[in-house]
Design a protein around this nucleic acid. Sequence first.
RNA 1: UGGGGAUUCGUCUAGUGGUAGGACGACAGACUCUGGAUCUGUAAGCCGGGGUUCGAAUCCCUGAUCCCCAGCCA
Length: 566
Amino acid sequence: MTINEESTLSNFIQQAINNDNESGRFDRRIHTRFPPEPNGYLHIGHAKSICLNFGLARDFGGLCNLRFDDTNPTKESVEYVESQKEDVRWLGFDWHDRELYASDYFDELYEFAKQLVLDGKAYVDSLSQDEIREYRGTLTQPGRESPYRERSVEENIDLLERMKDGEFPDGAHVLRAKIDMASPNINMRDPVMYRILNTEHHRTGAKWRIYPMYDFAHGQSDSIERITHSICTMEYEDHRPLYDWFLEELGMYQPRQIEFARLNLSHTVLSKRRLLRLVEGGYVNGWDDPRMPTIAGFRRRGYTPEAIRDFCDRIGVAKNAAIIDIALLEHSLRDHLNKTAPRAMAVIRPLKVVITNYPEGETDWLDAVNNPEDETAGTRKVPFSRELYIERDDFMEDPPRRFYRLAPGREVRLRYGYFIKCEEVVKDNDGEVIELRCTYDPETRGGSAPDGRRVRATLHWVSSEHAIDAEVRLYDHLFMRWNPDEEADDGADWLSFLNPESLVVVEAAKLEPSLADASPGSRYQFERQGYFCVDTRDSMSGKPIFNRTTTLRDTWARVQRSQSNR
RNA sequence: UGGGGAUUCGUCUAGUGGUAGGACGACAGACUCUGGAUCUGUAAGCCGGGGUUCGAAUCCCUGAUCCCCAGCCA
C-alpha cells in the first residue's frame, strides 16, 4: 500500500526524534511503547496511537513495547487484556516478547516510594478524600498544606508499611509527594502516589493492598524499560513536570515525553464513557457491534487492517484538536477493498423479471470476472435463466431526467449476460410493480452487441431459480451529526443524534449461488452496491448473513440529491 | 493578571524569512459491460489589528476564539 511519504516523514514527533538523534541524547536509540489500560475495548483513537508508536519504532529501526497500564484493579480485567492484544495483533503489529505490565514493577515502585519518603519528598496523608479536595484549592486559588505534611520519616515509613500490609480500610490514608501546594499546576500540588485499594489484581492477586497512581507508575515504568520517547495525548502535557520530577528525584534514566492530539472522528463518539453507555444502554449490540468505532467493531464490519493503517498515516500527527471526516476513513477502506475484494452479484430488494422469449427450464452459465482490478483473481460462472431478479431501484416506470436504468420500452445490459428490453409492467391491485416482462437479444450474450448497438446502463441480477437467500444488514453512520458531542441549540443531548437508520435489516436478499459457501469474515464487493462481509458472529451455513461494510460511491444518489434541492 | 496547549482551503495536514503545497470532500469533463475504479481539470485557506523587513503563515507587539486541568481514574 502506498503511503504518503511526505506527511509521514514530516510530523513534529519525527522531527523531535531526528533532533535527539543528532544531539545524541539517547545514543540514537529509539524505543517507544503503546500503554493501554485494560479497562475496555480499543477504538480507532487507540489505533492512531498504535500506528504512531509501532510505526516510529519501525521507521527508525527501534523497538515498541506493549505495556498494560494496569494500576487500577477495580476497573481492569484479563478479558480486556486479551481483547487488546488481539486488536493490536490484528492491526498488524508485533511486540515480540515485550508484553509488559506496570504491575511487573510493583515491587520496584514500592521501593521508589520508600526512597522518596526517606528523602523527605513524600508523606502519608490521613485527610479524607473530601478534605484533600478542599485543601487542593481551585484553578485560581492556591491550595493549603495538609496538617499531616510534616510527619516524621519514621512515622511515614511505619504508616506506609502498614498501608501495604493491609491494616487500613480503603481511603484511610494515601501517600503523597511533597512538592508545592501553591503551584499553578494543580498536578504539582502534592499529588497522590499510592492509594489503599483492598481489591485483588488480575495479575498480582492478593499480594497488594495499595496501588500506585498513574503519575507514579508511568514515568518509572518508561524509565525501567529504557523507553526513549514516551508519546501520549495532549491532556498529559500538564503532567509532564510531574513525570520529570519523579524521575529526577529518584535519580533515574529520563525518557522524553511528547504529546500529540488525540483522534476525533466525525459522526461518532470516542470517549470511553460514551462508548460504554452505548453498549450498556442497548443502543448497539455489544462492543463489537459493526457500528461501533472500536477495532472489534470495524473488524466485524469488514474493515481491513491495511485500511485502518492507511487512514492513520493520512491523518497526520499534530497538536491541535481536530475532527477528522469519517469520509477519509471510508476512502482508505474503499481504496483497499477495491483492489482486493472479489466481486459478486446480489440483489438486495428483488424485483422479478421474466424473459418472455427465453426458453423455460434452460440454464446458461456465463463467465464473470472476479475482480477487474486484479487479473489473478480469475473468473467464475453465473447462471442465467428465464426468471430473474433485478434491484427494485433499477426500474422506474416514469423515469426522471438522467435516470438511465430500466424503464418501459428501454433496453439495458444485464452484467455479463444479455441486453434486455422492458416490454410490460405487471402490477398488483395496489398499483405496486411486482413483475417486469422483458425480451432478450440472444445475439448479445456476454454483454456486447455485434451490431455495435450501445446501452446506457448495466444492471446486476441473479437467476431466481439458482439464487440463495440471505439476510443483509445495511449499516450506516451511527450518528447523524458531524459532532454528536456538541450540544444542540435546543439542549438536546448526544444520544438524540443517534441515526435511526444506522442499521437496516433486509431479510430476504437474493445472492448469486457462488456465495453459498462464503466463509465467515470473507469480504466481497456486491457490484454497484458496496462492500459486504459475512458476519462472524451470527452467520450460519445455509443461512448466511452479510454486513454492509460501506457503500460504493454513488453518483446517481448525488444527482438525485442535487435535483431535489432545486 | 491560575496554569498548559492550539488557530493555514468545507475537513485534515505541510511550511521553520524568499512562488502557500498535498490529501479527503465538492464541482466539471474524459473513459467505462459496476452511475464503481481510473484519468484530466476547477473552485477553495494563513484568526483579527499593528509593527520589523527589500520580502512575513513564519519574527515582535496586541487582541480574539477554541481545547485541557481542581479523581484516592488513566
